[in-house]
Amino acid sequence: MKIIAVFKWSRNPQDGRVGMNGTLDWRGVKMAPNDDDPAVMEVANAIVEDGEIIGLTIGDGDIAWAAARGAARTMVVTDAQTETDSSVTAAVIAAAIKRVEGVDAVIIGDSVWDYGVVSALMGQLGWPAVAGVVSAAKEQGRLRVTRKMGTASQVLEVEGPVVLAAAANREEKNAPGMKEVLFARKKPVERLTMADLGLAPAGDVSSKGTRFPDTPPARMIDGKDPVAACKELMAALRSDGVL
């Protein structure tokens, strides 16, 4: 299969420095692979067979990250960054994907860092798409993907080309060693700009800035009445989709 592994398309939200007055400072922070990106490479390697994995990333940060984990080559849109409007970010990624002919699968990390980009990319490619994918396999030429549905998992058969959003359920196993990392830096890199993709950095969506939420991030439940407290908790957990 010919697979595009989309990696390192956002900054790590834990890297932003929060000011006393609720400002957010991103100075010096580069784009980072997210916690689900290792799962992207795992799924890609599981189904690639004798095909090719192409890494695709945007902006600054470590371009060779996917190459150190099995990508034969890497495309990078150097002047793109994560935009406020995830549709704009996804459009950049989609435009780069469309430059590659005969793609069978696009895999992106199903990252809580920015679900918007994942959704928008799935929509813009318009292919069959599955999120929350924990593993995939080729069986008699057909692609079978397993996705998390709460505590259960669901196995789907999907005909390509497909978009999969891969979700990690553990820390990266078998991270590449120094030698592999250095070798990966010698693999081919295609550097693209927004202009090459016929895109203008844009969007009429604007951020009005950040602030502290009115309510603290943790929702406190009074446990004096344990029955009521547990009822409130269960309702909240149901809303969060973890029950």
Binding site: T84, D85, V117, S119, A120, G123, Q124, G126, A131
Partner: peptide, 24 residues
């Protein structure tokens, strides 16, 4: 909602409407 199925459907609708997409 942020269920994996809902997010995927939303992406499709957003693309068709040419809408802005924002998560969380």
């Amino acid at each position: 909602s942020d269920s994996s199925v809902g997010r995927m459907l939303l992406g499709s609708v957003a693309a068709k409407l040419n809408a802005t997409m924002i998560g969380a």
